[in-house]
Amino acid sequence: MIESVSTVIKVGIAQMDIVKSPHTIRTSGLGSCVGVVLYDEFKGIAGLIHVMLPDSSLSRSDSLNVAKFADTAIPAMLEQLKREGVHPFRLKAKIAGGSQMFQFATNRESMRIGPRNVEAVKQQLKNFSIPIVAEDTGGNSGRTIEFDTANSLLQIRTVNQGVKEI
């Protein structure tokens, strides 16, 4: 008899990956970054992106890491999911992150990066008509998130508020 063992796929900062049932996918230490989960609950398949910056126009590099920016990561993830046979209209989203880790008076726009990341992710999801069924964004705490393909729940762990599921 073959037992199906659930493993955890880890996604680093400015990276993305796909998971299939019965496995889970997680990313650790989200601060101003936003974790975006796109999933098809019938197929038991999900993609997780660890978005670091809102827009690829901020890039001053010759080579673009598409997973880093909200505006390039979400279309790229949709392509990956399509190749797995997922229909975009069946996708739903859950998002978490976008904290303001430090509060201090400065005019540097990068200090507001958390809220800007959340706005950019929402705009992209709206463009592709993907509904956000749950979110835990903003505040000033770091988060570790893990998505379970078995029940489509996103587990969120923070230092001060323990663990919750959305």
């Binding site: 650790s28 230490g29 601060g31 430090f102 509060q103 990066i113 570790t144 230092v159």
Partner: peptide, 27 residues
């Protein structure tokens, strides 16, 4: 230096904040 800000939280969530400027250049 700007006035220092104090926080107690996950290391990744904290240090990634300091990488925002650099992330516009590379990884």
């Amino acid at each position: 230096p700007t006035p220092p800000a104090l926080t107690v939280d996950m290391f990744g969530a904290i240090i990634s904040y300091g990488l925002i400027e650099l992330s516009q250049i590379g990884d």
